[in-house]
Amino acid sequence: MAKLNQIIAVEKGVKAKAQQELTSAHQDVQKPALLTGISRTYQPKDEEGEQLPPESTRVQLQAEDVLRDTATALTRLFDVTATKDWANCTARADITVEGRVLLRDVPVSYLLFLEKQLVDLYTFVRKLPVLDAAESWSQDPSTDWWKTETVRTIRTKKVPRNHVKAEATEKHPAQVEVYYEDIPVGYWTTVKFSGALPARRVNQLTERVERLQQAVKYAREEANGTEIEDERVGDAVFGYLFG
């Protein structure tokens, strides 16, 4: 008996080896020289004629042997992949978060899907808009928005003023400097609104995603530890194809 995680661990290497051997076999059968042999002898017309040695070339590659070797190489890949896929139909585990079973008997393929989705959700949650910490916010029940306390500010207007630097004399006019003075003319009453989230809410959501991510990984490891039967399908496939 093997475990699913053991099959997953060797699958990549088996696939690479099978692909390499299939490529090599394909290249070999495309070389006519390896498949060709010859045997010939020479006999002169009369006894005084030139004697030439016989010539021969052996067949270096037999196509049936290539088929047999290819079937052997691919049978292991077919068996390993079948064992993994058959096991994926039965290997399951519960997703448990904070002592509570969130989902029961989840298959490995769905656990892998969840892992990928939770990576994207984590990025999404981390980028949620947060209320400005410089303001004091409360929830407005009439709109369900967040709002600040009412702030009253003065609106001012610049009014020109004259400053006499030197009084007028018989010989010189008065020296007057113009300056502007801010004079209150009214009041602004301001309330800010926001649809963003409090930082504690974003932190809470982030922690939940992280906890679920850990729970899904744990469940996947548990499911991948399921004991499985080795499947033997390669012999049947290649027995038909090359038999």
Score class of each variant (00 low, 15 high):
residue 23 T to Y: 00
residue 23 T to S: 12
residue 24 S to H: 08
residue 24 S to R: 14
residue 24 S to K: 08
residue 25 A to T: 03
residue 25 A to D: 00
residue 25 A to E: 05
residue 27 Q to C: 04
residue 27 Q to P: 02
residue 27 Q to N: 13
residue 28 D to E: 14
residue 28 D to I: 14
residue 29 V to R: 05
residue 29 V to W: 01
residue 29 V to S: 01
residue 30 Q to N: 13
residue 30 Q to F: 12
residue 31 K to C: 01
residue 31 K to W: 09
residue 32 P to E: 05
residue 32 P to V: 15
residue 32 P to F: 09
residue 32 P to K: 01
residue 32 P to Q: 02
residue 32 P to S: 08
residue 32 P to M: 06
residue 32 P to L: 07
residue 33 A to W: 05
residue 33 A to H: 13
residue 34 L to W: 03
residue 35 L to I: 04
residue 36 T to D: 06
residue 36 T to S: 15
residue 36 T to M: 14
residue 36 T to V: 11
residue 37 G to P: 13
residue 37 G to R: 11
residue 37 G to F: 05
residue 38 I to K: 11
residue 39 S to Q: 12
residue 39 S to A: 11
residue 41 T to Q: 06
residue 41 T to G: 07
residue 41 T to R: 08
residue 42 Y to K: 02
residue 42 Y to P: 00
residue 42 Y to D: 05
residue 43 Q to T: 14
residue 44 P to G: 13
residue 44 P to K: 02
residue 44 P to L: 06
residue 44 P to W: 09
residue 45 K to I: 13
residue 45 K to S: 15
residue 45 K to R: 15
residue 46 D to A: 05
residue 46 D to Q: 12
residue 47 E to H: 09
residue 47 E to G: 08
residue 47 E to I: 13
residue 48 E to K: 15
residue 48 E to M: 07
residue 48 E to Y: 06
residue 48 E to Q: 15
residue 50 E to I: 12
residue 50 E to F: 11
residue 50 E to Q: 08
residue 50 E to D: 09
residue 50 E to N: 11
residue 50 E to H: 05
residue 51 Q to C: 00
residue 52 L to I: 04
residue 52 L to M: 10
residue 52 L to S: 07
residue 53 P to W: 01
residue 53 P to R: 07
residue 53 P to V: 09
residue 53 P to T: 06
residue 54 P to N: 14
residue 54 P to L: 00
residue 54 P to G: 13
residue 55 E to W: 01
residue 55 E to K: 04
residue 55 E to P: 00
residue 55 E to I: 04
residue 55 E to A: 10
residue 56 S to N: 03
residue 58 R to D: 14
residue 58 R to F: 01
residue 59 V to D: 10
residue 59 V to H: 10
residue 59 V to I: 14
residue 59 V to W: 09
residue 62 Q to Y: 07
residue 62 Q to D: 11
residue 63 A to Y: 11
residue 63 A to W: 08
residue 63 A to K: 07
residue 64 E to I: 11
residue 64 E to P: 04
residue 64 E to N: 14
residue 64 E to D: 15
residue 65 D to A: 12
residue 65 D to T: 15
residue 66 V to Y: 02
residue 66 V to R: 06
residue 67 L to E: 11
residue 67 L to N: 10
residue 68 R to V: 10
residue 68 R to Q: 12
residue 69 D to I: 06
residue 69 D to K: 12
residue 70 T to W: 05
residue 70 T to D: 08
residue 70 T to H: 07
residue 70 T to C: 10
residue 71 A to I: 10
residue 71 A to W: 15
residue 72 T to L: 14
residue 72 T to Q: 14
residue 72 T to R: 10
residue 73 A to L: 12
residue 74 L to V: 12
residue 74 L to S: 07
residue 74 L to M: 15
residue 74 L to Y: 02
residue 74 L to Q: 06
residue 75 T to A: 05
residue 75 T to N: 09
residue 77 L to K: 04
residue 79 D to F: 03
residue 79 D to A: 09
residue 80 V to Q: 02
residue 80 V to H: 00
residue 81 T to F: 00
residue 81 T to M: 02
residue 81 T to S: 13
residue 81 T to G: 09
residue 81 T to W: 01
residue 82 A to H: 03
residue 82 A to V: 03
residue 82 A to Q: 07
residue 83 T to Y: 03
residue 83 T to H: 00
residue 83 T to M: 01
residue 83 T to C: 05
residue 84 K to Y: 02
residue 84 K to N: 03
residue 85 D to N: 06
residue 85 D to C: 01
residue 85 D to L: 02
residue 86 W to Q: 00
residue 86 W to Y: 11
residue 86 W to R: 00
residue 86 W to H: 06
residue 86 W to A: 11
